[in-house]
């Protein structure tokens, strides 16, 4: 388990570097380091399917983010509202931690298969769906509506990206909103 904690510390450090760094390219690369650390953790915990997906998604995200950030400078920062935003963030963090502490007490121990539904999936995956891979049996048969929602989310995300990434039809820098008048 020691290597697991080492990797977790590595991920936390990489995430902190990604947040605090003022160079966007360095931030993107340390974000990729955090994701690859998560991939190694999945491998150590015996989840090769997750590790594979995490790896390929991480590589692709790295390429896209590098492509997006490499020609741009750092974005402008918002000033004057630090106190309000920090206090609201703090309040929500406290609420979240309280709920998390309450919820973690009710959970079964780590790796302890107490969930009856999960056990049913594992035992009946092959016989009820005919798929040898139990991951596919769950993702595309027992809980296929999750996959449908995932496809819908990807669809919406791409439409949003396309509507943001355009030059023609955008407002100019000095152009005003029509609502103002």
């Amino acid at each position: 388990m020691a290597e697991l904690y080492l990797l977790l510390v590595f991920i936390i450090i990489a995430a902190l570097v990604a947040i605090e760094n003022h160079n966007l390219l360095s931030s993107v690369i340390s974000l990729g380091a955090a994701g690859l650390g998560l991939c190694v953790i999945f491998l150590l915990l015996g989840a090769p399917e997750l590790a594979l997906t995490q790896l390929v998604v991480e590589v692709l995200a790295l390429i896209i983010l590098v492509r997006a950030t490499v020609t741009k400078t750092a974005p402008e920062t918002y000033k004057g509202r630090e106190l309000v935003s920090y206090s609201i963030t703090g309040i929500f963090i406290i609420i979240f931690m309280a709920f998390a502490a309450y919820a973690f007490r009710c959970l079964p121990g780590f790796g302890f298969p107490a969930e009856k539904v999960a056990k049913y999936f594992l035992e009946n995956g092959l016989s009820q769906t005919g798929a040898q891979s139990v991951v596919s049996a769950i993702a595309l048969d027992f809980r296929a509506i999750d996959s449908l929602a995932a496809v819908a989310v990807i669809f919406a995300a791409v439409i949003g990206t396309l509507s943001i990434l355009r030059i023609r039809g955008r407002k100019g820098i000095n152009e005003r909103d029509e609502i103002d008048s």
Binding site: P48, E49, L52, A131, Q132, S133, V135, S136, A137, A139, L140, S147
Partner: peptide
């Protein structure tokens, strides 16, 4: 994907 690692 329905036999081994992988999938869509």
């Amino acid at each position: 994907g329905h036999l081994n690692l992988g999938g869509g």
